[in-house]
């Protein structure tokens, strides 16, 4: 697995998209890196696309993605202090499924 980066003086190892592609290529065996790369990019695009059309994503054992509404509010320009009307908006939300919650909580 991939690069290390620094956060709060602690090293958190991370898995990136290219790590994921490499690992899937090894697991798959008979598919070329290029094919797996295209597949992984397509999967991520399908998920982004679904959410950007307001569609939920439900992956059993992993979790679900949906949109949450943030109501309109009055904000402030931090420089001038002027009031700014901010319109309501949708933000992506992820709710981990039971299997992922349990596995993450019993970290190896």
């Amino acid at each position: 697995m991939g690069a290390l980066f620094v956060k709060d003086q602690e090293y958190t190892p991370s898995l990136t998209k290219s790590d994921l592609i490499e690992s899937l290529t090894r697991a798959q065996g008979h598919l070329a890196y290029k094919d797996v790369e295209l597949a992984v990019k397509s999967l991520i695009e399908m998920m982004s696309n679904a959410l950007s059309m307001g569609e939920r994503i439900e992956i059993r054992g992993f979790g679900s993605f949906s949109l949450h509404f943030r109501p309109p509010r009055v904000g402030r320009n931090p420089k001038s202090g002027d009031k700014v009307e901010l319109p309501g908006k949708y933000v992506p939300h992820f709710k981990p499924g039971k299997e992922l919650r349990d596995r993450a909580n019993n970290q190896k």
Partner: peptide
Amino acid sequence: EAKEIVEHFFEEVKVALETGHQVKLSG
């Protein structure tokens, strides 16, 4: 193949998270 790739994709993310990794999917 299509079914396996989808299964493996989410399984890899779960394994990473349960072994203390963070997962960064750019975009």
